[in-house]
């Protein structure tokens, strides 16, 4: 029964493998991912953000709104984890 799930998986895998042939080869400096916004990040990142680590420059400056969302997600995950497991502690009357 569960082995049947192999069939769509194999089909999907074959599709993805075929699609991988259409992607630019790994390490291609002219790939679309490397020519859209990333040249701006690399060439002007240090002088615009003051960070020679370009990843930090992108993370904390160019895309800090994105990072704000991620931080909120992490905070919410911690809150959810505590609430899911913490309800039991409060039922005990202050075991924790």
């Amino acid at each position: 029964m569960f082995r049947l799930s192999l069939v769509p998986l194999v089909v999907l895998g074959a599709l993805l493998m075929t699609a991988a042939g259409g992607l630019p080869p790994v390490g291609d400096p002219e790939s679309p991912a490397a020519t859209h916004v990333s040249p701006r990040y690399i060439s002007r990142g240090p002088e615009e953000t003051g960070a020679t680590n370009l990843v930090t420059g992108v993370l904390a400056d160019y895309r800090s709104y994105d990072t704000l969302g991620e931080t909120a997600v992490i905070c919410a995950a911690g809150l959810a984890c505590w609430l899911i497991l913490g309800a039991r502690w409060r039922e005990d009357g202050g075991a924790q």
């Binding site: 991912a33 690399i42 990843v55 992108v58 895309r63 991620e70 995950a77």
Partner: peptide, 14 residues
């Protein structure tokens, strides 16, 4: 390209 690195850094923590 630093952009995927930054995106995946947050993805790992999430």
């Amino acid at each position: 390209n630093p952009l995927p690195h930054a995106l995946m850094l947050t993805a790992i923590v999430v």
